[in-house]
C-alpha cells in the first residue's frame, strides 16, 4: 500500500551528457579499462612464455606426454609424461577435499548456529588465523609429526580394512598418499570453514523462523533453511580449497615419496603431484627438463580450470531457485 510519490514541478535543468562525462567519469573509465586490459595482457604473456618454453621439450620427448608415467626429461633420450603426476595431484586433492569438507562444514555450523556467542567469536578468530598459516608450516609439521605417527593408524587400516582396495597393499609406510592428503586436508580446512561460516551466517532469519515455526528442531531448521541456502557458497569454498590443494607445493613435496606410479593403494609408498615434482626437480633440471616441468605446470593449470568450470556448472544448475531467492 504505497502512497503515490509527488514529483516536483520544476526539477534541476538537464545537463548535456558531455559535460557530465568530463567530471572524473572519463579518467575513471580509462583507469578501470586500462587495468583490465593490462591484466589480460600479462596473463596472455605468461601463457605465451610457458607455451614457448614447453614446446621444445615436448618435441624432444621420446614418449607420449599425456600417458607416459615415468619422468626422465634430463636423460640423453628424454622420456617423460604427466600420467602419474596428474593422477597423484587429482587423487591427493580429492581425498583431502573429501576429508576436509564435512569437518569444515561442521565447524562452520557450530560457529554460526550452535556455539554460544562468545565461544563462536573466539573460534571464528582461531579459524581465520589458521587459514593464514603458511603452508610450509603444515608441511614441516606433517614430516616431523604426522609421517611417523601415521604408521600406526595405517597399519591398523591395512590389517582390518585391507579388503577395501584403497587400504590394501603389502608395504605400509608413513610417507604415503594418505598422509599427504591428510596434511592437505588440514591445510584447506580453515579456508573452507571460514567461507562456509560467513555463508551460513547470512542465511535469512525469515527462513530460519519459518522452519522453527513449523516445529523444526535446530538440526531440522539447519537442514531446511540454512544448508540449502549455503550450498553454492560451500561448493565455492570447497573448490577454492581444492584449487589450493592441487597447487600446493612445499607441504606435499616434503611428504610424497616421489614415485612415478599410478596406484590406488593410498597407504603404500606411492604418489607424487605436479607441483611437488616441479619443486623437487627444477633445481637440477636441464633445458629440456625445465621445459618438461613447465609443460606439467600448464597441465596443472588446465586441471584447475576444469575443476572451476565444473563447480560453476554445479552452482548454475540450480540457478532458477537461486534467482527466485534473490
Amino acid at each position: 500500500m504505497a502512497t503515490p510519490t509527488r514529483t516536483t514541478e520544476s526539477g534541476p535543468a538537464l545537463r548535456r551528457s558531455a559535460f557530465r562525462r568530463s567530471r572524473g567519469d572519463g579518467p575513471f573509465r580509462f583507469a578501470s579499462t586500462g587495468a583490465g586490459v593490462v591484466l589480460l595482457a600479462i596473463m596472455a604473456a605468461i601463457g605465451l612464455f610457458l607455451v614457448v618454453k614447453a614446446v621444445p621439450a615436448l618435441q624432444a620427448n621420446t614418449s607420449h606426454f599425456l600417458t607416459e608415467l615415468t619422468w626422465q626429461p634430463n636423460a640423453t633420450k628424454p622420456v617423460f609424461g604427466i600420467g602419474a603426476l596428474a593422477f597423484g595431484t587429482v587423487l591427493s586433492s580429492l581425498l583431502a577435499l573429501l576429508i576436509a569438507t564435512p569437518v569444515a562444514v561442521g565447524v562452520a555450523l557450530f560457529i554460526s548456529h550452535y556455539a554460544p556467542r562468545r565461544l563462536a567469536s573466539a573460534l571464528g578468530y582461531v579459524v581465520d588465523l589458521l587459514a593464514a598459516v603458511p603452508s610450509v608450516v603444515y608441511g614441516l609439521w606433517g614430516v616431523t609429526f604426522l609421517v611417523p605417527f601415521m604408521l600406526g593408524p595405517s597399519t591398523f587400516l591395512n590389517d582390518y580394512f585391507g579388503w577395501i582396495p584403497l587400504f590394501s597393499g603389502e608395504s605400509i609406510v608413513g610417507k604415503s598418499m594418505l598422509t599427504a592428503s591428510l596434511v592437505l586436508a588440514i591445510m584447506i580446512l580453515p579456508i573452507i570453514a571460514a567461507i562456509s561460516r560467513e555463508v551460513f551466517l547470512q542465511a535469512p532469519k525469515m527462513q530460519e523462523e519459518a522452519a522453527l515455526a513449523l516445529g523444526a528442531t535446530r538440526w531440522e531448521m539447519i537442514r531446511t533453511a540454512v544448508l540449502p541456502f549455503g550450498r553454492p557458497g560451500v561448493i565455492s569454498a570447497a573448490m577454492l580449497g581444492l584449487g589450493r590443494a592441487m597447487g600446493e607445493t612445499i607441504a606435499v613435496a616434503l611428504i610424497f615419496p616421489a614415485t612415478f606410479k599410478i596406484s590406488f593403494q593410498i597407504l603404500g609408498p606411492y604418489g607424487n603431484s605436479i607441483a611437488a615434482n616441479i619443486a623437487n626437480g627444477f633445481g637440477e633440471a636441464t633445458e629440456v627438463g625445465r621445459g618438461a616441468l613447465i609443460a606439467s605446470g600448464l597441465v596443472l593449470f588446465l586441471i584447475t580450470l576444469l575443476v572451476n568450470m565444473a563447480a560453476r556448472f554445479i552452482i548454475a544448475r540450480r540457478k532458477e531457485y537461486a534467482r527466485a531467492a534473490a
Partner: peptide, 21 residues
C-alpha cells in the same frame, strides 16, 4: 518448544517460502 510450535502454527509479516524448494 518444538512440539508447541507444531501445535500452534505461525504466518509471518513477510511471505517466507523456502526459496530452494
Amino acid at each position: 518448544p518444538v512440539s508447541v510450535r507444531r501445535t500452534i502454527g505461525m504466518v509471518f509479516q513477510r511471505p517466507n517460502p523456502f526459496p530452494t524448494m
